[in-house]
C-alpha cells in the first residue's frame, strides 16, 4: 500500500491545476457578475431589476449539473463551436455562483445604515461617489464572510467538471486511480478529501485576510457575528436566513 502511495499521489496532483484554475476562474467570474448584478437588483428602474432577477432566479432555480450539460452539450449546437471543457466549467461555475453572490451583495448593501446614505448626500457626493466611497466599502465588510462560504461552495462544485471530462482531482481519482488501484480505494479517497480540505483552508485564510483589510479600511474589526451567521446560513442560501 505504501508502495502505491508514491504512484497515487502524482496522478492525483496532476488534477490539481485544473481544479485550481476552475476555482480561481470561477471566483473571478463570480465577483465580476455578482457585484454589478447585486447593485442592479437595487436599481430604481423596474425593468433593470426584473432583468437581473431573471438571471438570478434562472441560475438559482435550475440545477448546476443541468447548467453544465446545457452549456457543454447544447450551447455548441446553437453557437456552432465546442467550448473547451475547462472553460465551459469556469463559465458555469461563475454564472451559477454569480447569481447567488448577487443576493449577498444586495443584502450587504442594504444592511448599510440609512444614516450613511443621508450623510453622503449631506456631503453632496454624487450617487457614484456615494456608492464607491461610503456605501460599498462598508457593505464589503458584511459581504466577505458569506462570500467565503460561496467560494468554498464553488471550490467543491469544481468536482462536477469531472462529468464533462475535465481531468481535475475528482476525475483523476475516479477514472485513473480507482480502476488501477482497486485495493487502495480508502487511501485514494482519503487523499482526495485532504486535497479539498487544504484548498478550502487556503481559501478561508485568504478570505480572512481580505476581511481584516476591508474592516480596517472602514475603521472596524472583522465582524465575528457576520461569520457565525454566515456559517449557520450555509452555502448559497438567502441572506435573510442569517437572521435566525
Amino acid at each position: 500500500m505504501s508502495d502505491n502511495l508514491s504512484r497515487i499521489v502524482p496522478v492525483l496532483l496532476q488534477g490539481l491545476p485544473p481544479t485550481v484554475i476552475a476555482t480561481v476562474g470561477g471566483i473571478v467570474l463570480t465577483i465580476l457578475l455578482s457585484v454589478p448584478a447585486g447593485l442592479l437588483l437595487l436599481s430604481s428602474r423596474r425593468w433593470v431589476r426584473v432583468l437581473v432577477r431573471i438571471y438570478v432566479e434562472g441560475f438559482r432555480g435550475t440545477s448546476e449539473v443541468v447548467q453544465l450539460f446545457w452549456i457543454y452539450f447544447v450551447l455548441p449546437v446553437l453557437i456552432g463551436f465546442q467550448l473547451v471543457p475547462l472553460w465551459a466549467g469556469v463559465l458555469v461555475l461563475g454564472l451559477n455562483h454569480g447569481a447567488y453572490g448577487a443576493e449577498i451583495v444586495r443584502g450587504a448593501v442594504q444592511s448599510v445604515p440609512r444614516a450613511q446614505y443621508e450623510g453622503a448626500i449631506a456631503l453632496s457626493l454624487s450617487p457614484a461617489q456615494r456608492m464607491r466611497r461610503v456605501i460599498f466599502p462598508q457593505a464589503l465588510v458584511e459581504m466577505l464572510p458569506p462570500m467565503n462560504n460561496l467560494f468554498i461552495q464553488l471550490l467543491k462544485s469544481t468536482a462536477i467538471l469531472a462529468l464533462i471530462t475535465v481531468p481535475e482531482v475528482t476525475r483523476q481519482a475516479r477514472d485513473v486511480l480507482i480502476p488501477n488501484y482497486g485495493d487502495d480505494t480508502i487511501l485514494i479517497f482519503g487523499l482526495v478529501f485532504l486535497v479539498y480540505l487544504v484548498l478550502a483552508a487556503i481559501l478561508t485564510a485568504l478570505m480572512r485576510l481580505a476581511e481584516r483589510i476591508a474592516s480596517r479600511r472602514v475603521g472596524r474589526r472583522p465582524s465575528r457575528a457576520a461569520r457565525v451567521a454566515a456559517r449557520a446560513a450555509g452555502p448559497g442560501v438567502s441572506d435573510r436566513m442569517a437572521g435566525i
Binding site: 468554498i152 467543491k156 462544485s157 469544481t158 468536482a159 462536477i160 469531472a162 475528482t170 481519482a173 475516479r174 480507482i178 479517497f189 482526495v192 478529501f193 479539498y196 480540505l197 478550502a200
Partner: peptide, 12 residues
C-alpha cells in the same frame, strides 16, 4: 470534512 469536500466525491 463533509462540509468542506465535494458531494460528488462523497457519493463516489
Amino acid at each position: 470534512v463533509i462540509r468542506s469536500t465535494p458531494l460528488l466525491v462523497q457519493i463516489f
